[in-house]
């Protein structure tokens, strides 16, 4: 049996949802040990046990919340000496990226980043990685041991196995040399009622929305459908909406039941973050926009006219039923 680690990223005492998603694949590849560090680590380890981790190491020392990357790298590198897993899985999210890169360098092994799939092959591990903004998918083999792979959020669907992990306290002693990148403050700006990553319906706006003043039109539609609002990078960079709303390669990955792209052209870097949505609807005044070639329903027309009318129709229909 291959020995695997899944690193469960903690933030503000909560486990990042990607860890449970990764568990769904990891448990098929071997015996999984989960590792969680920082406030809430024990509860998170127990949760990963429910998702198939056989064992877990947890440590709730505040040093992991107060300093970026280095304390966690030290803890993982120390534990590696004792456990030497074959494969270490991280999520492709900010904190995990910082830690995985440092750990790979510390262990001298390199790593595979931004993967959408990982599997065992010929006694080793391979991963699927989107290239050139998602136009191509490469199959990449890890040559070193341990193999380290970072998995994009929403690559797998989380599901519980009903198991329990044997949870061990991870002994750590973090020296001052690793207490350098200090977290002074964390500010939550997103006040979304429905979280973008978890929403069953996502309505995203792009440059075709014309300006920030028109985004409330999308909020209203989202409100009527019980969904969340996303955005293309073009409008995030333009300062119309915050980064927390960005969908795509350098933003969030979403996989809702319905994704409505409004005034978004459908650049690869955007679609790589939403193309596994169950149903895609595009509203665009250009029938030739790339998004039309992947939408289940493409509507050619002016978003600023269609969206308010659609909101009214949805509300009317809901009122009836």
């Amino acid at each position: 049996m291959a020995k695997l680690w899944v690193y469960g990223e903690m933030s503000e005492g909560k486990l990042n949802a990607t860890a449970a998603e990764i568990m769904a694949r990891a448990r098929e590849l071997g015996d999984v040990t989960a590792i969680t560090l920082g406030a809430g680590a024990k509860a998170a380890a127990a949760l990963l046990g429910k998702h198939g981790a056989k064992s877990a190491y947890a440590n709730e020392d505040s040093v992991f919340d107060e300093f970026l990357a280095e304390p966690a790298t030290d803890a993982l590198a120390d534990l590696y000496e004792k456990e030497s897993p074959d494969l270490i899985l991280f999520s492709f999210t900010s904190d995990s990226r910082d830690i995985a890169g440092r750990l790979a360098a510390r262990l001298g092994v390199g790593l595979i980043s931004n993967a959408s799939e990982v599997g065992a092959k010929n006694g080793g591990f391979t991963a699927k990685v989107p290239y050139f903004g998602g136009a191509k998918v490469a199959s990449v083999r890890a040559n070193a041991t341990p193999a380290i792979v970072l998995i994009r959020p929403k690559s797998f669907e989380a599901s519980e196995t009903g198991g329990t992990a044997e949870i061990k306290e991870l002994a750590v002693s973090i020296g001052d040399a690793s207490k350098r990148a200090r977290v002074v403050e964390r500010v939550v700006e997103a006040s979304e009622k429905v979280k973008l990553e978890d929403a069953k319906v996502v309505i995203s706006g792009g440059r075709g929305m014309g300006g920030p003043d028109n985004f409330p039109l999308l909020e209203e539609l989202a409100g009527a459908l019980g969904g969340a609002v996303g955005a293309s990078r073009a409008v995030v960079d333009a300062g119309w909406v915050p980064y927390s709303m960005q969908v795509g390669q350098t933003g969030k990955s979403v996989r809702p039941g319905v994704y409505i792209a409004v005034g978004i052209s459908g650049a690869m870097q955007h679609t790589v973050g939403m193309k596994t949505s169950k149903v895609i609807i595009a509203i665009n005044k250009d029938a030739e926009a790339p998004i039309m070639k992947m939408a289940d329903l493409g509507v050619v027309g002016d978003a600023l006219k269609i969206v308010p009318a659609l909101t009214a129709a949805v509300k009317a229909k809901k009122g009836k039923s």
């Binding site: 790979a104 092994v109 390199g110 790593l111 595979i112 391979t126 989107p130 290239y131 998602g134 136009a135 191509k136 998918v137 490469a138 199959s139 990449v140 083999r141 890890a142 040559n143 070193a144 790589v272 193309k275 895609i280 029938a287 039309m292 070639k293 992947m294 939408a295 289940d296 329903l297 493409g298 509507v299 050619v300 027309g301 002016d302 006219k305 269609i306």
Partner: peptide, 21 residues
């Protein structure tokens, strides 16, 4: 540290209906 074994076109979604408003 890693070897690209093969490269394929990303799985494309099929276009559905496109309607004029």
């Amino acid at each position: 540290a890693e070897t690209i074994e093969s490269m394929a076109d990303a799985e494309a979604r099929k276009a559905g209906a496109v309607i004029e408003d």
